[in-house]
């Protein structure tokens, strides 16, 4: 019969001895599995405050580890490694090295807000996930995620025009993330459409090239938003102790 708790310990920290006697007691074999002792000295005491300084992370200190967020999580149901409760624990303990093991999946939060709905402490775990993903990027632990590229294209489009041009953002996104436009499923979609109503789509494509969506009288609002965002970014860089140029 397997020892279920074993699955909670990483394999490299489990030790089974073929023949070991301690104080006259034989502790060989499977039933005497040991967990390797470890001493943690490299706490990152600034991590919680730094993440709290980023948008969405403000309420992380309120968490009392009930696990409602992970229990409700959409992504956790697909990938059990995606565990907001655990990551909040690691951040608050300053266990940076442990957090970095999961650095490449934290950005995958889909913002469904099930965690925020379930949280009894108003932690807004969805925001904490975004702040954490942001922190990992700003600190250079991960490259910009596809999601961040998307957010930035989107934001830039709004600052410029007040609106979103879906086609333009799609192309820009595929280019930034190095993905080919010719993907079998995208082609299948377009083929299906064109077959059903070719004239309409040609007309709309032509129309969209000439008439770009734009909010009238937006210039000052766009500039005011950009000023504010730059100011906030400078403040965040200071809070994270980053070089302003970086």
């Amino acid at each position: 019969m397997p020892i279920h708790e074993k699955s909670l310990i990483r394999p490299e920290n489990l030790v089974t001895n073929d023949s070991l006697v301690i104080d006259g007691v034989d502790v060989s074999g499977h039933w005497s599995t040991f967990i390797r002792a470890r001493t943690i000295t490299d706490y990152n005491e600034a991590m919680e405050e730094e993440i709290a300084a980023l948008p969405g992370g403000e309420n992380i200190h309120r968490c009392w580890q009930c696990g409602s967020c992970t229990n409700a999580c959409t992504v956790n149901a697909v990938n059990p490694e995606f565990n907001p409760r655990y990551w909040i624990y690691l951040i608050r303990q300053g266990l940076e090295e442990e957090l970095l093991r999961d650095k490449d999946i934290i950005w995958q939060c889909v913002s469904c807000n099930k965690c925020t709905y379930a949280c009894p402490r108003d932690v807004v775990p969805e925001g904490v996930m975004k702040a954490t993903a942001h922190w990992l990027e700003l600190k250079g632990h991960t490259p910009k995620s596809p999601s961040t590229h998307f957010d930035e294209s989107f934001h830039d489009s709004i600052v410029r025009t007040g609106k979103i041009e879906e086609g333009r953002i799609l192309l820009e996104f595929l280019k930034k993330t190095g993905q080919p436009l010719r993907q079998p499923w995208l082609e299948a979609l377009v083929r299906g459409l064109v077959k059903r109503f070719p004239v309409f789509y040609l007309m709309r494509m032509g129309w969209n090239t000439v008439m770009r969506p734009r909010t009238r009288g937006w210039r000052r609002a766009g500039a005011a938003i950009e000023d504010y965002v730059q100011e906030r970014k400078a403040g965040q860089a200071r809070a994270l102790g980053l070089d302003q140029e970086a």
Binding site: P55, S111, D151, H155, I158, T215, R216, Y228, V229
Partner: peptide, 24 residues
């Protein structure tokens, strides 16, 4: 002359900007 609400994206840049977009 309405503007974009920021959808799911602008809040990740800054939630206050997203609030402004809807307030306008």
């Amino acid at each position: 002359d309405w503007n974009c609400c920021g959808a799911m994206e602008v809040k990740n840049i800054d939630p206050q900007v997203q609030t402004y977009l809807s307030a306008r």
